[in-house]
Computed example of a mutant assay.
Amino acid sequence: MAWFAITFAFAVPSMLVMFRDDSGLTRRTWIQSLIFAASIAAIIAICCGKGKP
């Protein structure tokens, strides 16, 4: 769970910067950013959490 939280905290701002457009941060931008950040965090948590009970 810690890997997911740490990665999610770093991925959300990165995704917001990547997905924002000229009109700023819209609802669509937030949704896309949260979905992609959760996907990235899940992959990192699975890869880095292997071997731990």
Score class of each variant (00 low, 15 high):
A2L: 14
S39D: 08
I43H: 08
F4I: 03
I31G: 03
R27C: 07
S33W: 05
A2F: 09
I40T: 11
Q32L: 14
I46L: 14
V12C: 08
P13N: 02
S23H: 03
S23W: 04
G51V: 08
A42F: 12
A45V: 05
T29D: 07
R28M: 08
L16C: 07
C48I: 07
T26R: 06
A45C: 09
C47S: 12
I43P: 00
I46S: 07
A5F: 14
C48Y: 14
Q32H: 09
C47P: 00
M1F: 10
A11R: 03
A41W: 10
D21L: 06
G24V: 11
R27N: 10
A38N: 04
A41P: 01
F4M: 02
R28V: 08
F10D: 02
M18T: 12
K52H: 07
T29E: 07
R27F: 10
S14K: 03
D21H: 04
S23F: 08
C47E: 07
W30Y: 15
D22V: 07
T29A: 10
G24S: 04
K52E: 05
S23Q: 08
C48D: 04
F10G: 05
M18K: 00
A9I: 12
A41L: 02
K50T: 11
S23L: 09
G51R: 12
I46K: 12
F4K: 06
C47L: 15
I40G: 01
R20F: 05
R27S: 11
S14N: 07
A11E: 07
K52W: 10
R20N: 09
A2D: 12
I44Y: 09
S33G: 13
A41G: 00
S23E: 05
V17L: 13
G49L: 09
A38M: 12
F36H: 04
R27M: 10
G51S: 08
A37T: 00
M1A: 14
I6V: 15
V17I: 15
I6A: 12
A5G: 03
M15E: 00
A37G: 04
W3D: 13
F8D: 01
G24R: 04
S33V: 10
K50F: 13
R20Q: 11
A11P: 01
T29N: 02
T7G: 04
M15Y: 07
R28D: 11
A41N: 06
W3M: 05
K50N: 13
I35V: 15
Q32I: 12
K50L: 13
I40R: 07
V17W: 07
A11M: 03
V17E: 11
A2T: 12
L25G: 01
A45S: 13
L16W: 02
A45F: 10
L25K: 00
P13Q: 03
S39M: 14
L16D: 06
K52F: 12
S14F: 14
P53T: 14
C48M: 15
M15G: 00
I35N: 01
T26L: 08
W3V: 11
Q32D: 03
A2P: 00
A37F: 01
A38R: 05
I35C: 08
A37R: 00
A45G: 02
A45K: 00
A38H: 01
Q32E: 11
C47G: 06
F4N: 02
L16F: 13
F19L: 10
C47Q: 13
S23K: 01
R27K: 13
T29M: 05
I6D: 09
P53H: 15
T26M: 08
Q32N: 06
M15N: 00
